[in-house]
Design a protein around this nucleic acid. Structure first.
Lengths: 163, 163
DNA sequence: GTCCATGCAAACCTTTTGCACTATA
DNA sequence: TATAGTGCAAAAGGTTTGCATGGAC
């Protein structure tokens, strides 16, 4: 049986509030996300379920993740890898600021007070109603730099503008 | 014939530097991106080419966009819509800060000096070598708010944490 | 004449959907 | 027992690739 984490308890409550059945599959998928501190791909989730002896169809995983995101217990990230990653929202920072290593995919979260300020200022200026934001800084993490990784530079010989 | 914009000139130079042929298709795709101030999807690019009488295969468009990105004359964006958008890097702001309307998809660019500072600080702190960044603020643009658009809130009745 | 690009279609990958079957409440 | 979920396989949508043909240099 699945031991009950606080988040899982909330997810069950959410399902009941919505009049939806609490199934073994939903609990299993939720528990995988809730017991991980990482940004999981659907592939990751599927293989973790499998290693626990659970064989749950991809369609069900996607459908459950959709519920988890809707419940606000989980957030979805798109780091431009061609697929999405899912992360529990409770515990840890749950910051929307990330350093993302282009070499190994490592993600470091951080909080920025200043970004919140920029957000407030610029949205007010444009009459824009902010709902969420993300700041993503792509580059090379320390371990990859120390391993001597260099990213290829294929640009024009005389660069135009470097940001 | 295609009239030569400064960017197109640079793209030709880039192709020659790389020992690659300058073809009509490459010039046509590049010119579409260089003469637009918007964030174009491949669909957009294809239809603009078509309306100019150019019928260029999608594969060629993708391959040319890849070259344009490599040359650094164009940047690619992924706003989580399920496809990518392309934008010329010269002229205009070419900021990496965006307000993105969840209702109509409108994108407003802005520059933020503070974000550059946050980037410098946090990357130094983590020994991370930054290459590029993006700040995306999702929400409702003024016109959509005035049109009375409200986004559904399906979350738990007692929200956990609101960012 | 030698490469390389192009165009088409097929392949690919992630995600979504249709449908017969099963489980929840 | 009624209602909704599950699993499988097929479909969908954007992007990539293989290959024969055609164009750049």
């Amino acid at each position: 049986m699945i031991e009950m984490s606080p988040s899982l308890r909330l997810f069950r409550r959410y399902l009941k509030e919505q009049g939806l059945p609490v199934t073994h599959q939903r609990e299993a998928v939720a528990q995988v996300v809730f017991t991980s501190a990482e940004h999981l791909s659907v592939e990751d989730i599927e293989s973790r379920l499998r290693s626990e002896g659970d064989r749950i169809g991809k369609a069900t995983i996607y459908r459950t993740l959709d519920l988890l995101v809707r419940s606000r217990l989980v957030v979805v990230h798109d780091f431009g890898e061609g697929f999405k990653r899912y992360e529990q929202r409770l515990s840890r920072g749950s910051a929307f600021e990330h350093l993302i290593c282009l070499e190994c995919g490592r993600v470091i979260e951080f909080d920025s007070w200043e970004v919140q300020e920029v957000k407030a200022e610029v949205t007010q200026e444009h009459g824009f109603r902010p709902i969420r934001h993300k700041l993503e800084i792509y580059g090379l993490c320390r371990p990859c730099q120390e391993a001597g990784v260099e990213l290829p530079d294929d640009g024009l010989t005389c660069p135009i503008e470097t940001v």
